[in-house]
């Protein structure tokens, strides 16, 4: 086996990430897949039965464990920068996982399905409380949009500074512009904080 090393063998790119959050079945994995340059990958984190994060294999032999799966995609921005998109696990009980996902993130897209707005409340609370920049993306299931952006904003009781956009998670351009909206929002938050 021969490993071919190139001239830049001692460097690695800078990695950044965006979290795609929202309630169960709101289109998170679909959005990751529609903009990722690779088919979404899946990785598993090990948990004890009590839902505690296993960060050391010490003492877990013989104990019951379960796993939580994460879907993610990748966009190579340049040889120096890679962007990862992580869908949050559907089940809300894995909050520790959300902390790891949100750690150092550019921000989050919170997907909402207007037929089940409440499914996305916990995501919104999570990012609000941690002061992580996020945008709300109303996923247009069934093509028809029953509510206006303002109605959704009102129903979610959102801070006026939080952007709300309509999107179709299956559509690459629509998902792209949702990401662009989030990055711009994060930039303006940064400028605001610097002032």
């Amino acid at each position: 086996m021969v490993f071919v090393a190139s001239d830049d063998a001692l460097t690695v790119p800078t990695a950044v990430k965006i979290v795609i959050a929202g309630g169960f079945g709101t289109g998170k994995t679909t959005m990751v897949g529609s903009v990722s340059e690779i088919p979404p990958l899946r990785t598993e984190e090990l948990l004890t039965e009590a839902g505690v994060h296993v960060d050391d294999l010490a003492g877990i032999e013989g104990k019951e464990t379960t796993t939580v799966a994460l879907d993610f995609g990748r966009i190579t921005i340049s040889p120096q920068i890679v962007l990862y998109l992580f869908g949050t696990p559907g089940q809300n009980r894995f909050w520790f996982m959300w902390d790891e996902l949100a750690h150092g993130a550019i921000g989050a897209v919170v997907l909402v399905d207007t037929r089940r707005l409440d499914a996305s409340f916990p995501s919104i609370d999570f990012f609000e409380h941690r002061r992580i920049p996020f945008v709300v993306a109303v996923n247009c299931f069934d093509g028809a949009q029953a509510y206006t952006v303002d109605e959704v904003r009102g129903a979610l009781d959102l801070d006026p500074a939080i952007p709300v956009v309509l999107c179709d998670a299956r559509d690459r351009e629509s998902s792209k512009s949702t990401l662009i909206g989030l990055i711009r929002h994060s930039m303006s938050r940064l400028e605001h904080a610097a002032r």
């Binding site: 800078t14 950044v16 903009v35 340059e37 966009i75 921005i77 340049s78 920068i81 962007l83 550019i106 792209k176 990401l179 662009i180 990055i183 711009r184 994060s186 930039m187 940064l190």
Partner: peptide, 12 residues
Amino acid sequence: LLQAVLDGVRGI
């Protein structure tokens, strides 16, 4: 970094 990511996503 955010600007570079923004430009990159616009370009995909």
